[in-house]
């Protein structure tokens, strides 16, 4: 019985949260990797673009709520996301037209692109803060839990409860669907294949008659979808705060690089690698050991490898190890 309790404990506090968080990171990491693979720069406005998409989603959520429209047990935000995506793509294309396009035509070095993306980061932060403010926003409505901890305990008679939040299920489900669609698109459609070719060898792709303008456009459209959905899911699950989104850029970058930058599948897995390591290393295992060890051997301390404040340290250590021993990432970069 104690053993089952221990398993439930790990499921509840490690496995499910890490899977959720990993999905959110994965979407962001694919976004980073796409921009890097096709437009060829590290986009430092990643986190803030995601916060812009989320903000638009929140605004539409509020609008629908004011109209009395809702999805019943599901959060209204799901209805708002498509509208958020449209505005996100519009914003990205606007920025591309007025900012990035010039440097693309100039064939500027990646470093200059990165600097420019910092300008975009400042502007986007300002836009988001001016429109919605810097504060914490919760925009979740509908049924909060699919399984409540107490119900679970009553149902199974175990000591440990398993709580399954609807946002967790939605996040994982949406991520699976979205990522499957994306890989289908990249591997099976003509446009997807030409994107791959363009990422692999720009000159060769251009010679074979691929329209670079179309590639760039499609890239931003996909990026907009990923950024908005990734951001909105994170916001639904936790809460929306512009500063948090800016900071999330770091684990997202780490996930993209660990997975091999330029490789969307790697970025997808990288998200989970980062999420699981962060949570596994910062979880306090005391209760777990209390279940599986005999009473005499119970630990007195928290049995926590690292304090949660050192979340970044985990992403970073993985990043450094990967960069030193496998600079192209675990799954080898540049094969989009």
């Amino acid at each position: 019985m104690d053993f089952v309790n221990a398993i439930i404990l790990l499921l509840n506090y490690i496995f499910i949260p890490a899977l959720t968080y990993g999905s959110q990171l994965a979407l962001g990491a694919i976004f980073v990797t796409l921009i890097y693979g096709i437009l060829r720069f590290a986009n430092f406005a990643t986190g803030d673009m995601m916060s812009f998409g989320t903000m638009m989603t929140i605004l539409f959520t509020w609008y629908f709520q004011s109209l009395g429209v809702s999805l019943g047990v599901l959060p209204t935000a799901l209805l708002a996301i498509p509208f958020g995506i449209i505005f996100m793509i519009f914003y990205m294309l606007l920025i591309d037209k007025f900012v990035f396009k010039y440097y693309r035509n100039q064939k500027s070095p990646p470093v200059q692109f990165a600097m420019v993306s910092i300008g975009v980061m400042f502007v986007t932060q300002a836009v988001v803060r001016i429109i919605i403010g810097p504060g914490d926003r919760r925009f979740f409505d509908g049924e909060k839990f699919i399984i409540k901890a107490r119900e679970f305990k009553e149902m199974t008679g175990l000591n440990e409860g398993l709580a399954l939040k609807s946002t967790q299920v939605i996040t994982i489900f949406v991520t699976i669907v979205l990522v499957s669609l994306l890989f289908w698109f990249l591997n099976r459609t003509k446009t997807g294949k030409s994107m791959k070719a363009y990422s692999d060898n720009e000159d060769l792709a251009l010679l074979s008659g691929i329209d670079p303008k179309k590639i760039v456009l499609v890239t931003w459209v996909i990026a907009g979808i990923l950024a908005t959905i990734g951001g909105a899911l994170y916001g639904l699950d936790k809460s929306f705060k512009p500063f948090t989104y800016f900071n999330n850029m770091l684990p997202i970058f780490a996930a993209a690089i660990v997975g091999g930058i330029g490789n969307p599948f790697g970025a997808f897995l990288g998200g989970y690698v980062i999420a699981f390591s962060e949570i596994l290393l910062t979880y306090a295992y005391k209760k777990f050991f209390m279940y599986i060890l005999p009473e005499s051997m119970e630990p007195s301390s928290l049995v926590q490898l690292l304090s949660t404040d050192y979340k970044f340290a985990v992403s970073f250590s993985i990043l450094v190890i990967v960069l030193i021993y496998r600079p192209s990432g675990i799954f080898k970069g540049k094969v989009l």
């Binding site: 990646p110 990165a114 770091l250 970058f253 050192y310 970044f312 992403s315 970073f316 990043l319 030193i324």
Partner: peptide, 28 residues
């Protein structure tokens, strides 16, 4: 010693992460 061999954009990300760790240590 750790990061200087990296490509420019990786170096940028690595240094950004390291500075976050420094702050985490100082805060904690």
């Amino acid at each position: 010693k750790v990061a200087l061999g990296l490509r420019a954009d990786y170096l940028a990300i690595a240094t950004l992460l390291i500075s976050e760790i420094v702050i985490a240590i100082i805060k904690h």
